[in-house]
Nucleic acid binder design. Structure first.
Lengths: 251, 251
DNA sequence: AAAAATATTGCCAAGTTTTGCAAAGTAACA
DNA sequence: TGTTACTTTGCAAAACTTGGCAATATTTTT
C-alpha cells in the first residue's frame, strides 16, 4: 500500500463520515498505528482534515442547527437509544422517522452497529448514520425546514416501496385518553405507514411525552409493536395499553 | 519484453487501480526495480500518470471531492450564479442538480429571489434555498455522502413526476471530443432527465471544466439548452457546439 | 460521587525496511 | 567497437515498525 493510496483512502473515509478512528484505519490500511497517525498529521497540515485524539474529523463545518427538543430529557433519550442499538443487529434494515428521540437512537446506532440499511426522512439522521450504514436511503418529498425532514404525499409514496426488519418511530404524545398522538396529520400518516412497512416496529417515548395529547391520533395498531420508555409509565397509560398489541420495555 | 510493452502494461494497471507499486510491477514485468522506476519516470513526463514514492498513481480517475471543487475557480462560479439568478424570475419553478457550480447558483438565487419552487437532489442546496423558496422538494434516493446528494433509480423515478420551468445543471467536463461528460453514469442519467423535465434548461460550466473529459457522456441533446460559461470557450469546443442545439452565454 | 483500576492514545526514540538516486557493470546487437 | 537497454551495487534518505512511557479516557469498584 503506497503512501499516496493511504492518503486518498483516509480522505475518502473522512469525507464520507464526520470522523474516522486511527484504530479502524490501521485495519483498513494494514499499517501500524504510528503510520496512520503520521498520515493524519500530514493531511492535517495541508488542511485536508482535522486531527483529533484517536483519529481525524472532516474539515467541513456541517453542523445542523439543533432544536431545543434535543435537550429535554436528554439522558432518557440516550438510554432509549442505547437500548434499541443493542437490540438491532449489524446488517439489519431499519426505517427511522424524524424526531429528537429517534435522533438519539441514530447516534447510538452509529456508534455501535455496522452495515445497516437505513430508510429515513430525516436529513440529520441520514448524515449521522453514515459510519454505521451500508446504504442510507433518504425518502423524497417536500422539505420541512423546521424539522429538517421531508414530508407529504411523495414521502409516503416513496416509503411504500420499501420493507424493513425494524422501524424506530417517535411519538408526539402518549396518554390514556388518546394513546399515541402526533402534532400533524402528515406526521401521523407517515408513522402509520412506517409501522406497516416493518416487521418489528419500535415506538420510542421518553418521559417528557407521558400524558401529552397531540392533535392527531395514530391509527389503531394492526400489528405487534414494542414501546420503549425510559421510566415507568403512569398507571392509567399502562392499563390502557393492556388491551393493545403493545409490549412495553423499560430501557 | 519490450519497453513499449511494459509501458502499455503499466498504464493499464494504473487505469484499473488508483495506484500501483513498483514492487508489484517488477514481478508482473519481470524486470528490475530500477527499470520500472525509469519507465514510470518517462510516463510521468508524458503526463500519462503521476509518479509517487514507491509507485505511480493514475493521473485522474475520480472527480475531486466537493470541498476542493467549491474552491476551484470560485469567482467564475459566482459570476455564473449571478447570471442565472438574474435570469430566473421570482416564483419560478427550478430543478437544480448537485455540484459546486449549481451550489454557487443556489447561493445567488437565495439572495435575490422569492417564492421559488425548487426540486433538487442536493441536501446542501435544499438547505440554502430556504429563504428564497415557497417549497423545496428533495428528491428521494440513496444518499451519496461524498456529494451530500441523493442518487440512483429512486431519484430518477421521483424526478420523473415533476416538470419545471427552469433547470440548473452542472457538467463534469466539456470537450470537443466528447462534448458534455460526467464522472458517473448515475450522475449523467440524472442530468439527462433533468433537462427533459424542464422547459428552459441551463448547463453551467466554469472554465475549470473546459477540456476535461469524464467517463460518461451525456445523451445527445433533444432540446434547446443554454450553456452558461464564465470565460471564452476554447475554439475546438465552440465549433463543435455549432452543430448542437446549444446557445452559449458568457456571464 | 469519588477513587481506583484498566484501557487507549499521543509522543518520542531507537531499529529495521524500503526507496530513490547515481554510478558502474553486463548483455545484446549492428 | 560503440550503442542501447537493462541490471547490479552502494549508500543516503525516507518511511515504517516497535517498544516505552506519560497523559488522557473509560470502566469498575468503593
Amino acid at each position: 500500500m503506497l503512501p499516496s493510496e493511504r492518503h486518498a483512502i483516509i480522505l475518502e473515509e473522512v469525507s464520507r463520515q464526520p470522523a474516522v478512528s486511527i484504530r479502524s484505519l490501521t485495519e483498513r490500511l494494514g499499517v501500524s498505528r504510528e503510520t496512520v497517525r503520521k498520515d493524519i498529521e500530514q493531511l492535517a497540515q495541508e488542511n485536508k482534515l482535522n486531527q483529533v485524539r484517536g483519529g481525524a474529523t472532516s474539515v467541513r463545518t456541517h453542523e445542523p442547527p439543533m432544536a431545543d427538543r434535543t435537550q429535554t430529557n436528554r439522558e432518557g433519550k440516550e438510554r432509549i437509544g442505547a437500548y434499541v442499538a443493542s437490540t438491532i443487529p449489524d446488517g439489519a434494515s431499519v426505517i427511522i422517522d424524524n424526531g429528537s428521540t429517534t435522533l438519539a437512537a441514530a447516534h447510538a446506532l452509529a456508534a455501535a452497529r455496522r452495515d445497516l440499511v437505513i430508510y429515513t426522512n430525516d436529513l440529520t439522521i441520514a448524515s449521522i448514520l453514515e459510519p454505521a450504514a451500508a446504504t442510507v436511503t433518504l425518502l423524497g418529498g417536500r422539505l420541512d425546514f423546521s424539522e429538517n425532514a421531508t414530508m407529504g404525499l411523495d414521502t409516503l409514496d416513496h416509503l411504500s416501496r420499501y420493507n424493513a426488519e425494524y422501524a424506530l418511530i417517535g411519538v408526539g404524545g402518549i396518554s390514556a385518553r388518546a394513546l399515541f398522538t402526533y402534532f400533524s396529520l402528515e406526521g401521523a400518516n407517515l408513522r402509520n405507514m412506517m409501522i406497516e412497512r416493518s416487521q418489528r416496529p419500535f415506538l420510542l417515548a421518553d418521559s417528557s411525552k407521558f400524558n401529552v395529547v397531540g392533535q392527531v391520533a395514530m391509527k389503531p395498531l394492526s400489528m405487534d409493536v414494542t414501546l420503549v420508555v425510559d421510566s415507568e409509565l403512569p398507571k392509567g397509560i399502562s392499563e390502557t395499553l393492556r388491551n393493545q398489541p403493545v409490549k412495553v420495555v423499560r430501557a
